[in-house]
Simulated assay, not measured.
Amino acid sequence: MNFVNMIIETLGDLYSTSGFAGLTISHVIMIGISLILMYLAIKKEYEPLLLLPISFGMLLTNLPLAGMMAGPANGEVGGILYYLYQGVKLGIFPPLIFLGVGAMTDFGPLIANPRSILLGAAAQLGIFVAFLGALLLKHIVPAIHFTGAEASSIGIIGGADGPTAIYLTSRLAPHLLGPIAVAAYSYMALVPIIQPPIMRALTTPEERKVKMEQLRPVSQNEKILFPIIVTILVSLLLPSAAPLVGMLMFGNLLRESGVVGKLVDTASNALMYIITIFLGTTVGATASAENFLNPKTLGILALGLVAFSFGTAGGVLLGKVMHKASGGKVNPLIGAAGVSAVPMAARVVQKVGKEENPTNFLLMHAMGPNVAGVIGSAVAAGVLLSIFG
């Protein structure tokens, strides 16, 4: 009998120290959400490079007693994800991602057509619409209240730039990092679904058929001077944007200099992918049940969709203005690429334009606003950070 009691007591102790003892319905829901995101990343290939690490980080942080995100206490070391998360908290990982993006990006289409930067700026409309919407939401849904810093972090979703959203949120509203990252990357993955209806609703078939003239060749000297000039101007005008824009332009200078091929290869491949793993997993690990399962998350998801939609609309509407001003030489569809989902938004523009006119080739024209959107979202983040940081 004593032996049986000992077995029962041992099993009871084992259960009490296992994660099953701490498992709540909230944990089960979050684990379910993480599995759904994994499915979307693997089976549907929705932004898998970041959505898969984010979803697995979400799974790890919602396993009770695993302590993956636990900080050091009582002389004991913290969890591995806690230490990796310092790269997000200290603003290290997002600028390094921008370094890799810069090393992969050709700013030639933007240099060849400088007006593209206006379309990239217009597409940031969604950021400020969502920002105002977040501040005013409390008058519609009293249970959901956002501060100015939180509203800024939500608005930046409209820039369609995941690292920028993570960078700004980690500085202004780190407790919202999980839901904002999930919303940002989920909507980025849905760009081919969200954008076309808006583009068609705001343009006529005749406008969508417009064929644009071939862009002029851009010299290597122009490509080398561009990142240097942009870094100086943006950093002097808006110092808070320097970490993102500076690293983006440094990566691009490495690419265009033509003398450091190994550095370009490292920045755009090995370094980029290593940081992506660390960034995605630790950002996902901030999506604990306590931080994620609340009314604010629903508000963030709704406002994120508003931000994307208005960003697309802002770019297309300015494209229509340029269409009129140029005497019909500009296809307004390229304005939709002003959101900085590179190069997905440009590919969507190419697809919609080609559906209307099979001989149309808008990809290179759309890449100008697309890369301008990367700069624009970083500048918008700098503006918000300088006000609320």
Rank of each mutant, 00 (worst) to 15 (best):
V4P: 00
L11G: 11
L11H: 04
L14Q: 12
Y15H: 10
S16R: 12
S16K: 14
T17D: 15
L23E: 06
L35I: 15
L35A: 13
I36P: 02
L37T: 06
Y39G: 02
A41D: 09
I42T: 10
P48S: 03
L49R: 12
L50A: 07
L51D: 07
S55V: 08
M58R: 03
N62W: 01
N62F: 02
L63M: 14
P64S: 06
G75K: 13
Y82N: 09
Y83A: 10
L84C: 02
Y85S: 14
L90M: 12
P94N: 08
P95R: 10
L96G: 11
F98V: 00
A103I: 07
T105I: 13
F107I: 05
F107Q: 02
I111P: 08
N113G: 00
P114H: 09
L118V: 10
L118H: 07
A121C: 04
I127G: 02
F128N: 04
A130R: 12
L135S: 04
L135D: 02
H139Y: 14
H139K: 15
V141G: 06
P142G: 03
F146C: 08
E150R: 02
E150C: 01
S153N: 05
I157R: 05
G158Q: 06
G159L: 11
G159N: 12
I166Q: 03
Y167M: 11
L168G: 13
T169M: 10
A173P: 03
A173Y: 12
H175S: 15
I180L: 05
Y187E: 09
M188G: 11
A189S: 13
A189E: 03
A189T: 02
P192E: 13
I193Q: 06
P197K: 08
M199K: 03
E206N: 04
E206V: 14
E207T: 01
R208A: 15
R208E: 15
K211G: 01
K211W: 03
E213A: 13
P217G: 05
V218S: 10
S219T: 15
I224N: 08
L225D: 07
F226I: 09
P227F: 07
T231A: 15
I232S: 03
S235T: 12
L237W: 10
P239A: 09
S240W: 08
L244W: 11
L254D: 13
S257Q: 06
A267L: 03
S268G: 15
N269A: 07
L271A: 11
M272F: 15
T276N: 07
I277T: 10
G280A: 09
A287W: 04
S288I: 11
N291P: 12
F292D: 01
L293Y: 14
L293W: 12
P295E: 02
P295D: 00
T297V: 09
G299K: 11
L301P: 02
A302F: 09
L305Y: 10
G311Q: 04
G314D: 02
L318A: 12
V321P: 00
M322F: 15
H323G: 06
A325N: 07
P332C: 07
P332A: 10
A341Q: 11
V342W: 10
A345T: 14
V349E: 06
Q350M: 10
K354A: 09
E355W: 06
E356D: 09
E356V: 10
T359C: 00
F361I: 11
L362C: 05
L362T: 08
A366Q: 08
N370A: 15
N370P: 05
I375D: 00
A378T: 07
V379R: 04
V379M: 10
V383N: 04
S386G: 11
I387V: 15
G389A: 04
